[in-house]
Nucleic acid binder design. Structure first.
Length: 390
RNA sequence: GGGUAGAUUCCGGAGCGGUCAAACGGGGCAGACUGUAAAUCUGCUGGCUAUGCCUUCGAAGGUUCGAAUCCUUCUCUGCCCA
């Protein structure tokens, strides 16, 4: 086992903020495993690289012999975390939450060590609370404290509504820390406020307050907004190697540097061509969730498709012409069934007219065309997506 | 409870009886260029069995040849006062 000082050094690496390192060191010096808490709301069924930043940190705790406590916010998901929101979150149905929780944990264990993870649902304690329990919980914090929050302040300043259940969220999350007796709570920097509330709650309960450990927020593929499924700027950790590789190749150079730092903990090698650096990064990330062989295959295929533009050599998904043989019909089908990104007939028509669609390298710009389809032809629907006619 | 302002297409926001599938900006998508980078330029951005047709401007009714625009009721939200 590593010394407390060594552990501290490893654990603080890549973090954005820790309150406080001194406290963390003290806890480490106790020599008993720390309880490291991470709360997740199963609001979406898929985990992406944004989540992975904090999950990797939690795994690091596990590797150092500590206890990971993963709280599934089945209860909190019903409230909806207002963090970073300019609008109230729509509530989720109970069924959706439970099924999300299922896929969520499944994916989380691609990163975490299942054996060393304690999984708890916070509905376990919150669903048992009576209304007077709730009132007492609320009595622990002041309105002024809650209004300190950036999101709420902004909304109020902009004359937007803030509903009362939303200001309960930090209270509820804070109480989780008391319930699981957390020593450390991990989260994105946007969780700072919520985690601090947990600290206060523990103090009033006479517990030793948890250490706050915030990790940087990963930007999405657009490089501006935070990675999230709803903005469709994410790379899912269970996406196919090729998808993952391709998405990572589309990021900007600035973003590449950031991803490298936050996800791999490394600086980009500035002596090589940025594209090469990006390929290495993409391959390294694919390897993390798959194997080196699969990463290499993804890279080869990508190079065939986009560097050499040799679509014949590339391994493309097959598409069998169905009922509809007209161009609009076929392209619509391809988007829907092969790439699962449905487009309306009008969208497809537009793509065709704008010269996005090619058959064996020939642009097809007439939406009414009905090409003589033949097995083996390559149908390119846009710059990034092609299929082979089967 | 009283007063007042408002609800428009993904978002912001014009429109105030026909010329409105609705200006403009943002975002998004596509094309050109390129390193599936950035920057730049161009086009598109409700749907369809598509030179026309259908459904949209908080909801329901009404006036009118004709309504996002006028009237009635309802629902929701902000702000001010208590």
């Amino acid at each position: 086992m590593k010394s407390p000082a060594e552990q501290l050094q490893l654990l603080t690496r890549g973090t954005a903020q820790i309150i406080s390192e001194k406290e963390l060191l003290k806890k480490l010096e106790r020599g008993t495993p720390l309880r490291a808490k991470l709360g997740v709301d199963p609001t979406s069924p898929d985990l992406h690289l944004g989540h992975s930043v904090v999950l990797e940190k939690l795994r690091q705790f596990q590797e150092l012999g500590h206890q990971a406590v993963l709280i599934i916010g089945d209860f909190t998901a019903q409230i909806g975390d207002p963090t970073g929101r300019s609008k109230t979150r729509p509530p989720l149905s109970r069924e959706a939450i439970l099924s999300n929780a299922e896929t969520y944990t499944e994916q989380a264990f691609r990163i975490l060590d299942r054996e060393k993870t304690e999984v708890v649902f916070n509905g376990e304690w919150f669903n048992k609370m009576s209304f007077s329990d709730v009132i007492q919980l609320n009595a622990r914090v002041t309105m002024q404290q809650m209004l300190q929050r950036e999101d709420f302040k902004n909304r109020i300043a902009n004359d937007q509504e803030v509903r009362l259940h939303e200001i309960q969220y930090p209270i509820v999350q804070g109480w989780d820390s008391v319930e699981v007796r957390a020593d450390v709570e991990l989260g994105g920097t946007d969780q700072l406020f919520n985690i601090l509330v947990g600290r206060d709650m523990q103090k009033t309960e006479g517990m030793e307050p948890q250490v706050v450990m915030c990790l940087p927020i990963l930007e999405g593929l657009d490089g501006v907004q935070k990675m999230s499924k709803s903005l469709n700027n994410y790379v899912g950790i269970s996406e196919a190697p090729r998808e993952m590789f391709g998405k990572l190749m589309s990021i900007s150079d600035e973003l590449m540097a950031r991803y490298s730092l936050l996800l791999m903990g490394e600086e980009i090698d500035s002596t090589i061509h940025p594209m090469e650096a990006k390929k290495s990064l993409a391959a390294a990330l694919v390897t993390r969730y798959y194997t080196t062989d699969e990463a290499a295959a993804a890279r080869d295929n990508w190079e065939a498709m986009f560097s050499r533009k040799d679509l014949d050599a590339a391994d493309l998904p097959d598409f069998a012409i169905g009922e509809r043989r007209d161009l609009v019909g076929v392209v619509t089908e391809v988007y829907e069934t092969i790439f699962s990104s449905p487009k309306s007939g009008s969208d497809v028509r537009r793509l065709i007219q704008q010269g996005s669609v090619q058959l064996d390298g020939e642009k097809l710009t007439d939406p009414r065309a009905e090409p003589a389809w033949a097995r083996g032809q390559v149908l390119k629907v846009d710059k990034k997506r092609s299929v082979r006619i089967a």
